[in-house]
Computed example of a mutant assay.
Amino acid sequence: MKNLFLAASVLALCLSACKNENKATMETETIMATDTTATATDSIETTETPMDSVAMQKAWEAYATPSEPHKMMAEDVGNWNNEMTFWMGEGGESVKATSTAEINMILGGRYQETNYKGNVMDMPFEGKATTAFDNATKETVSTWIDNMGTGMMVLRGKYDDATKAIISNGNMVDPMTGKERQVREVFTIVDENTRKMEMFETVAGGSEYKSMEIVMKRI
């Protein structure tokens, strides 16, 4: 703020010299600039409460330290066989496929990384998912990329203890129309060695339909 005041004062002096304004006018402009700066400072101080160094350190430690949801994610670590079912649109026929998944915790147990490999419609399939639990927002954030597209899907959700499932929502782009579709994912912890992932899509102006299901069995 001091730098802002200095810059404003120098600018006022330069303009004053160029226009040959008298001393009284220059003093008035300086006072006005000072009052404006003070008002801006007051406004900032009323909207932001500065944190001391100890509080800042504690906040960052809490943000960076793996928590209970991270321990839950770590329970998925291992290798899995997947039975995959796809539905090509609402009421469409189903297509079956198989894949494997290798799940690891990375970056000191802060994130989950899953690598998928298999065959879908007689084509080699590879995909990568990352999952985070954000200690600040108390929500799960997941990303998905694969070799059948060039985009990235991002979902945000919450864990529902009653159903033992993470329910996430986001959007994806339909490459055929260029328009976004609403996406809902339900990742259910069935038991220690079984997981189920269900994907639901909503076409603009239409109803939600189930587009994918993956049943994962630990190897």
Score class of each variant (00 low, 15 high):
S53A: 09
D52P: 00
T49L: 08
Q57M: 15
A59C: 09
D76Q: 10
K71I: 02
N82M: 13
V77T: 08
V77R: 06
P50R: 04
A64W: 02
Y63H: 11
T65E: 03
A64I: 02
W60T: 04
M88I: 11
K58C: 08
W80T: 01
G91M: 06
V54F: 10
T65P: 02
A74Y: 03
D76I: 11
Q57N: 14
M56D: 08
S94G: 04
M56L: 11
W80I: 02
T65V: 06
M88N: 12
E83G: 13
M51F: 09
N82K: 11
A55N: 08
E48T: 12
E68R: 06
E48G: 12
K71V: 02
E68V: 07
M88R: 12
S67I: 00
T49F: 10
S53T: 09
E75K: 14
M51L: 09
S94Y: 05
G92M: 01
A59E: 11
W80K: 00
A59I: 11
M72P: 12
W60R: 04
A74N: 03
A64E: 04
S67L: 00
N81F: 15
M88V: 11
W87S: 15
E48K: 14
Q57K: 13
W60A: 04
E75I: 12
F86Q: 06
T65F: 05
D76L: 11
P69I: 01
M73C: 00
M73R: 00
N79R: 15
W87Y: 14
W80E: 00
A62D: 06
P69Y: 02
G89N: 07
E83T: 14
A55W: 06
M72A: 13
M72E: 14
G92Q: 03
G91Y: 06
T65W: 04
G91Q: 05
E83N: 15
M56V: 10
T49D: 09
W87V: 15
A59F: 11
M84H: 00
N82Y: 10
P69E: 03
G89S: 06
N79A: 15
A64K: 01
V77P: 03
M88W: 13
G89E: 09
D52C: 00
W80L: 01
M88D: 12
P66S: 08
M73A: 01
M88E: 13
V54H: 14
M88T: 10
A64D: 05
H70A: 06
S94C: 04
P50Q: 04
V54K: 13
N79Q: 15
G91W: 07
S53V: 07
G92S: 03
S94V: 02
G78K: 09
E61Q: 13
G78H: 09
T65N: 00
Y63T: 11
A74I: 02
N82E: 14
E48V: 13
M84Y: 01
M88A: 12
W87E: 14
